[in-house]
Design a protein around this nucleic acid. Structure first.
Lengths: 197, 197
DNA sequence: GTCTATAGTCTGATAGAC
DNA sequence: GTCTATCAGACTATAGAC
């Protein structure tokens, strides 16, 4: 039996954990920091989650569905250029709306994906292989410029996630300007020129 | 007076430290790991470097010169497209030849650039502002397609560093294929199409 | 210069009162 | 359910023999 208070506390803890894990990585984060952000005591955190590891796992499990959704939505029946541009736009929106999730993911992969290799080699690889075949078909039919579908997908990841993951650097270089200001127009031009047959 | 043995040991330690810091981040790394990789005892590490922090600093200081060199080499007198393509190629080579350095840098920036903000807001910003002005001039003169110079530079960083920083993910998706296989041809096409007036 | 031993601190997790 | 107190292990750094 789960009460309303329990659900609320679990959510508060996971939100604080996302704050800290995404900013410090798994080993860099401490339960003290998470407890402080959540406004709860350290033992209280461990009443809701068995361990630091469990907390982190819960975040990654939540993350993966959200992370795969935009690519999942790429429709083989749609217009090729419009579908890929739409995918790019959705990924850029995710960098704007969920920068912490992007950095949580980046921290993991950067450190060799120790807790994500199963998910990446499983669900993510299957999804990418599937959509890569669709894109290859579009190119072969002349409906899209000939491009390597894997590098195309990687380039969308790299360009959109960069704005969340390297936010600190971009801010220091651009000063007052919002890091994402002009990014959509730039990426729109970049991919339109690449994809038009 | 610095002996040959001292120089050799310092180099061995820094190489081991780069291995571990780039793979685990600053807090994730331990002196035990670095000592094991270097083949020295933990107190011996601290004979050559005052602290873990000092070791990390030494790596970052070395890194910055190497990191800025490719953009520094972008020549205002050269052919616009050739200069930018050359810069992109040099950055991609750095991802191939110095992936650990790329990940060391990525780890730092991802965690808010706590130890790099001065260098980024100083030397790096000055260099980027300088080269951005050059690129803007080229576009205004019609020698290059009109592009936002900052986003152009960010896109080169994002696309080239992605192959080093997200290497684990790319390997899991591509299997046997070398992550960088086909990357040069893809990026060549992408930027040629973007930059041609 | 390099080692073993260890001091002192931080951190994840548990015990037990309320 | 939530807290204070605390344990056990890991970690950075130092002391001191050789």
């Amino acid at each position: 039996m789960t009460t309303r208070i329990q659900r609320r506390n679990r959510r508060k803890i996971l939100d604080a954990a996302l704050d800290v894990f995404s900013a410090q990585g798994f080993r860099g984060a401490t339960l003290d920091q998470i407890a402080a952000v959540a406004g709860l005591s350290k033992p209280n955190l461990l009443y809701y989650f068995d361990s630091k590891e469990t907390m982190h796992r819960a975040l990654l499990d939540n993350l993966l569905d959200v992370w795969l959704a935009p690519l999942h939505a790429l429709d083989p029946q749609g217009d090729p250029t419009a579908e890929i541009m739409g995918y790019m736009r959705r990924k850029l929106e995710m960098s704007r709306d969920y920068p912490r999730e992007s950095r949580l993911f980046a921290n993991e992969v950067l450190q060799g994906a120790p807790r994500l290799s199963d998910a990446i080699a499983g669900d993510l690889k299957a999804l990418v292989d599937d959509k890569a075949a669709v894109i290859r078909g579009w190119s072969a039919a002349g409906r899209l410029a000939p491009v390597d579908p894997y590098h195309l997908i990687f380039s969308i990841w790299a360009l959109t996630q960069h704005y969340a993951d390297f936010d600190a650097q971009i801010r220091l270089i651009r000063g007052e300007t919002d890091p994402l200001d002009g990014a959509d127009a730039f990426l729109e031009t970049l991919f339109t020129r690449l994809l038009t047959p």
